[in-house]
């Protein structure tokens, strides 16, 4: 349906699936096969006993596409539940990054100072490098990584977004 391009919305969707072989391929294949965007996707088992995994996917599209994405996800056989966190009230969204910065002298001290301001933790250090661990909203991670760039940024590893609804309710 030809919705105007201006209508693009970003949604964080949580999907509860059977933790079985191929389930992630099914979800990713659905997005690539139908031309939907994936901005970030994370997956891990969350219920050992019932063997359920939770996928958090951040996607974007017109309202009609977002509805389609949710409908397409829910008709996959191993999918139990699909929740559009963006639509269903307040939720918290977090991401973790490991950020390696190498350098000596003033740049090295500056990176440590900024890490302190951003509440990043040092999880590895040598005389010429740090690995910072940082958790927060993706924007905050982006800002910190941008600041590290001129200070000797070597590499970044990020988890992608995980999210959960606020309040006592259950998925």
């Amino acid at each position: 349906m030809a919705d105007p391009v201006a209508n693009i919305e970003r949604h964080t969707i949580a999907v509860l699936v059977d933790n079985e072989p191929g389930v992630l391929a099914r979800v990713i294949g659905l997005f690539s096969g139908r031309g939907y965007n994936i901005e970030s996707l994370t997956v891990a088992e969350v219920d050992r006993v019932n063997s359920l995994s939770r996928i958090t996917v951040v996607t974007s599209g017109t309202p009609m596409i977002i509805v389609q994405i949710k409908a397409q996800l829910s008709r996959l056989v191993p999918v139990h539940k699909v929740h559009d966190l963006s639509d269903e009230g307040p939720f918290v969204e977090r991401e973790m990054a490991l950020i390696k910065v190498a350098g000596r002298g003033e740049a090295r001290i500056e990176s440590l100072r900024l890490a302190d301001i951003f509440r990043a933790r040092v999880v590895d250090a040598t005389t010429e490098s740090f690995v910072f661990e940082m958790t927060g909203a993706s924007d905050k991670l982006n800002a910190f990584i941008a600041l590290m760039d001129p200070l000797g940024l070597v590499e970044v590893s990020r988890t992608g977004t995980v999210a959960i609804a606020r309040g006592p309710g259950r998925f």
């Binding site: 349906m1 389609q68 829910s74 008709r75």
Partner: peptide, 11 residues
Amino acid sequence: IDPSSLNKNVR
């Protein structure tokens, strides 16, 4: 019967 058929091409 298929939720993805509803509102797919036409409102």
